[in-house]
Design a binder for these strands. Sequence first.
DNA 1: AAAATAGTGACAAAACCTGTCACTATTCGG
DNA 2: CCGAATAGTGACAGGTTTTGTCACTATTTT
Lengths: 318, 318
Amino acid sequence: MSKAERLIEMMITINAKKDFTVGELANEFSVSKRTILRDLQELEQAGFPLYSEVGAAGGYHILKERILPPIAFSESEAKAIFFACQALQYYRDLPFEQETISVLKKFLNCLPLDVQNSITQIQNKVVFWTPDRHCDSPLLQSVFLAAVNCHAVTIRYSSTYSESTRTMIPVGLYAMNGLWYCPAYCTAANQIRVFRVDRIKEIIEEKPCPKGKYPIPALIQEYLEKTEVKNDCRVKIQLTDIGVKRCESECLLASGLKTFPTGGGIIDMEINRAALEWVADYILPFGKNAAVLEPVELIRMMQQKISELHQQYCGLKE
Amino acid sequence: MSKAERLIEMMITINAKKDFTVGELANEFSVSKRTILRDLQELEQAGFPLYSEVGAAGGYHILKERILPPIAFSESEAKAIFFACQALQYYRDLPFEQETISVLKKFLNCLPLDVQNSITQIQNKVVFWTPDRHCDSPLLQSVFLAAVNCHAVTIRYSSTYSESTRTMIPVGLYAMNGLWYCPAYCTAANQIRVFRVDRIKEIIEEKPCPKGKYPIPALIQEYLEKTEVKNDCRVKIQLTDIGVKRCESECLLASGLKTFPTGGGIIDMEINRAALEWVADYILPFGKNAAVLEPVELIRMMQQKISELHQQYCGLKE
DNA sequence: AAAATAGTGACAAAACCTGTCACTATTCGG
DNA sequence: CCGAATAGTGACAGGTTTTGTCACTATTTT
């Protein structure tokens, strides 16, 4: 094995270990300690972040922010990474904000000129737009860490209707439409609830949670897929062409949407009963472009809403 | 300059050039051709994608998918890249789908075990959820390329109300709430319009567009920021606590939202007149949780909508 | 004090690298 | 079809680098 090969291997090996001694490496690479010492000196000169401690319990350590083995990327992979990191920049309060920026800088500098231009052009033309940054989630980082480390957290939470203190074990986090949501097992309700991270006002306590104590899925994906199926209420809504197009923007309804070749369409799907109210609110402004066929419950709900509205807005006039 | 140094320099040099000859490199590095040939052989053995052509016009070329110079990432940077690429996976029809996947695989393999675990744990807990993938945008790639290359495209477009054929020069692309939008100069309307990419049904023609011919911003950001200011209509809406929370989910309204310490809040902002209809539809289902104070226009609009609804849903019964 | 660790300097043997030379083979242009 | 430019190979001598060894020093833990 030539010196060059050895140095590269050594970088990889060092990365994989937290600590090591000169003797260890000498053994692994079948060279003398003296050689290893010389190699390490070279690596240090090249900027590899090593430090060493002498003494019986001494040895080499790599600085906390470990450098990873060099990886070669193809041009299009580089572009993809750029694009992805750039996409993240538009999400506020992410745990990675700093790092993505430093990756972008580091990267751009060592790319060939024409690739640099091509990337700039992409950045000029394509963005992920989370339209504004009004809803700060200052606690996103903390919740993120709690979720990743499977900790239970006691929070002060301000829901749509009230403020309360509760203890929850996060299942995970997801971002949707620019907002962060945290499904979590709520010990008060004894079931999984979804919390909006920007509505978490304070983290009062955080402590490790014994695994298996609560019935929560290990994967957030598992949770998201499972909850899609809890549907117990059939909905049928007839739509005009315009109604169809408006529904297409809304993912939940769009999934049950069928269009007729002759124009118009119909939503025919099972949904969770609790979502009925939301459907009513969503469909309401459609006016003549939507006609609810089923369930009666939904029709009643809408009728009630409308008569309330009627009183509120037109009552005085009539 | 030692051999090891030279090899690294050589990788960088080779990346920066598309083509080169052995003689060229020999000159640059002040070594003999023979040495360069030996070096190149080594690089090839190490997996560097070179190929060569003999003959008078021959020389070395790097394969189209150029390998980039090795870059060292810190642990947290690596995590950030993973997170970013993973975020993209949930966007359908992206031009980069394939590449991001290969980056992820390549990466994960050469990370130290504990970092691998840590990344897996993040992936288990955090996702970007574009709730379903109903709205395919099969032409996203083509539009993407047209935007990046500043081409004009003639499309068949199916808007909310009708289908038409038009020629447009894309300003750029942005993703919002899981959908892709393409603001573009429409030669039919002689102004910039926003198209939804999933509603582009066909690309009929694509051709280079002379720069400067149409008044379009060079940067998509420029466009997005500019259009935020075109507001010509003052809106005031009083809200209850519940109304406030509902508005917080909606970025446009949330930006003009002020909450009172005593509870409740008010939206007081300038918006584009054309958005009034949208506001009416959005506010309508709020019922008593929202009271429109200004403009009269908006109040009238809502009254009309309500009376239409009233006829439609309650008219028969009464 | 002993053991384990890092670190340095000197030196000779071994290994490796390099340039040179003499080739072969291919391709392009005139 | 020739000459020029290119890649590629093999052999070898001379030079350079690398390596191991040995003999040290210094520090820390047990």
